[in-house]
Design a protein around this nucleic acid. Structure first.
Lengths: 190, 190
DNA sequence: ACATCAGCGAGACTACGAGTCTCCTAATTC
DNA sequence: GAATTAGGAGACTCGTAGTCTCGCTGATGT
């Protein structure tokens, strides 16, 4: 046990919860670090003792609050699995998590360190899951083997991410089917 | 002719040029309105007399400086046209315009008015060009007619926009071919 | 018991940038 | 030449991220 008063784990949790709820429910860019501190019943310094910046807290809140939101089922129909996964991602984008992701992306454009952390902690783990499923689909002979895997994933999920960030069209679950309809004939190995 | 001293059109141009050069060449988020005013040899008030906000100036600079950067050739091979267009977009994303777009997207996440203006003045005009080419491809019998056009464009270009914003992988012109390779077999009408 | 150490709440304080205001001068119309 | 609007310079306000200080608290070590 280290010297001194131990960290208050409950306060830590209150901070992350408050960040998630506030940023997820208010107009984007509208939540200051003071707001989070007040909502968590915590002093600002307590936040800065454990996180290096405002965005770092929010990223933590996002990672914690969105950990299990997009599970990847594994049946013997790879297309169906991807379509189902697209639907979970769409639901997640339309939830508070979607707002938080948008804030993180905004920050990432002007803060390379945040961008790196976002990719490492949020983007890449999900990406790896999708990649594994894609490779399994190739093994199963359901997906062409001659394509660049990163590109295939960019194509599949890029449509969603772009709508999230540009907002040129609404994003609903029918979109999952439409994307699969457009892409799958070109991906399938027959 | 209206009363009073006429607007200094040269100053207007200097402001837009300075904004384009500065934002396009410096680390993102590193250009203040004072920097632009100084570089353009202009008083800050002169900027705010004509633009409502910092981001509005930069969006104007982007629109003006990127107007003709992604022309859409029309041959009788629709796939080749799209592939060529993807290459021009990639080149544009890797130019100063790309940095400016990233700043605008960052701002758009927290400023709905900017988001709307970005879509209207930058996104939609290009989108309309792509849409027209896509519909022409359908008429020519080179592209399936049963797909949702917006989704097809999301899929084609979303891969690029996502790489621009996430930065998980570099974006070079070989990517244009890879995207076409992955998508076209599913789009072509045969 | 008591000193020591680190965390906590409260709130003052600093740094910085967006946007406003003021003052004076310049260019144009009536 | 009076009125009007723009431009340059720079002070000013305001809000927020992040720092600092202070008195207090909950642990450990002797």
């Amino acid at each position: 046990m280290p010297r001194g008063r131990p960290r208050d784990e409950e306060a830590r949790q209150r901070i992350l919860d408050a960040a998630f709820v506030l940023v997820g429910s208010r107009p984007p860019g509208d939540v200051s670090i003071n707001d989070i501190a007040a909502a968590a019943n915590v002093a600002k310094q307590t936040i800065y003792r454990w996180w290096p910046s405002r965005t770092a807290v929010i990223l933590d809140a996002l990672v914690q609050g969105t950990m299990q939101a997009t599970p990847f089922a594994e049946t013997d129909d790879v297309r169906a699995d991807f379509e189902a996964h697209l639907r979970t991602v769409i639901r997640m984008f339309n939830s508070p998590s979607g707002r938080i992701i948008r804030e993180m992306l905004a920050g990432a454009q002007t803060d390379p360190a945040l961008a790196e952390e976002f990719r490492e902690r949020f983007w890449q783990p999900r990406r790896d899951l999708s990649l594994a499923r894609l490779e399994r689909g190739i093994e199963l002979g359901q997906i062409r083997a001659d394509l660049d895997a990163e590109t295939v994933l960019d194509v599949i999920y890029g449509a969603l991410w772009t709508r999230l960030m540009i907002g040129h069209q609404p994003l609903s679950s029918v979109h999952a089917t439409r994307i699969a309809d457009a892409i799958w004939p070109g991906l399938s190995d027959d």
